[in-house]
C-alpha cells in the first residue's frame, strides 16, 4: 500500500475511494471495521453473527462508496447501513423462527470463530464486571435510545450526524440521549459514586 494513504484524513480517503482508488478504500475499511464491530456488539448482535454482519456492512460500504455524495456525511451514512443491516437481519430471523425450530439439528449449531475478549492479555486490566454491567445496561434501553447513545459515546458522532443516521431531528436526538443517560445513571449507580 502506498505510504501516503496511511496519513490521509478520512475525508481525503473517501474522496480518493470515490474516484476508484482501491488502496484508499482498503484503508477506510481498515479504520472503520472496529467501529462497526463494536457498534454491533452493543446493539446486541449474536456472537455467532457479529463477524458475518460486520463483513456484510463493510462490503456494502465498499460497494456503494461511489454513491456517497458528500464525504462529510460518511459517519451518518455508515451508521445508517449498520442500523438497517442489523434490524433487517433481526426481522428476517423473526420471520424464520418457525423454520429454524423445525431445522434445529445439531449441524446448524456450528461454532464460528470470533475474537474472545477473555483470551486477550491486555483485557485483564479492565474490570470485567464493569464491562458486563455497561453491556447489560445498554441492552436494557429501548432501541432508539440504545442506538443514539452508542453512536454518541462509542463512535463520537455529533447530534446532527446521529439525526441523519436515524432519520430524526436534533431535538429528538437530544431527548433520546438524555433519556438514555438518565436510565444508565440509574442502572450503573454502584459504579458511578
Amino acid at each position: 500500500m502506498k505510504y501516503k494513504i496511511k496519513n490521509n484524513s478520512l475525508d481525503e480517503l473517501i474522496e480518493l475511494a470515490r474516484s476508484g482508488d482501491m488502496d484508499a478504500l482498503e484503508e477506510i475499511i481498515k479504520r472503520q471495521q472496529k467501529n462497526v464491530y463494536a457498534t454491533l456488539y452493543y446493539l446486541n448482535a449474536k456472537p455467532d453473527e457479529i463477524m458475518d454482519l460486520t463483513q456484510e456492512i463493510l462490503f456494502k460500504v465498499a460497494k456503494n462508496i461511489k454513491k456517497l455524495k458528500n464525504p462529510r456525511t460518511f459517519k451518518s451514512w455508515l451508521n445508517q447501513i449498520i442500523i438497517n443491516q442489523f434490524y433487517d437481519t433481526l426481522r428476517k430471523k423473526q420471520k424464520s423462527v418457525k423454520k429454524v425450530c423445525l431445522e434445529n439439528t445439531e449441524e446448524s449449531k456450528t461454532n464460528f470463530e470470533i475474537p474472545d475478549f477473555a483470551s486477550n492479555p491486555y483485557q485483564k486490566a479492565v474490570d470485567k464486571e464493569l464491562e458486563a454491567a455497561i453491556k447489560n445496561s445498554i441492552h436494557k434501553l429501548p432501541d432508539p435510545f440504545k442506538a443514539a447513545i452508542i453512536m454518541r459515546e462509542l463512535q463520537g458522532l455529533s447530534y446532527e450526524e446521529i439525526a441523519n443516521a436515524t432519520n430524526s431531528n436534533i431535538g429528538t436526538v437530544k431527548s433520546r440521549i438524555a433519556r438514555a443517560r438518565l436510565k444508565l445513571q440509574e442502572y450503573l449507580k454502584p459504579y458511578l459514586s
Binding site: 482501491m22 482498503e26 484503508e27 475499511i29 464491530y37 460486520t54 475474537p115 491486555y122 479492565v126
Partner: peptide
C-alpha cells in the same frame, strides 16, 4: 479498553 486490542483484519477480504 474493550476494543483496543481486537484485530479484525477484514479489509483485504472485503477488497
Amino acid at each position: 479498553s474493550q476494543f483496543a486490542n481486537i484485530e479484525l483484519n477484514m479489509e483485504k477480504d472485503i477488497i
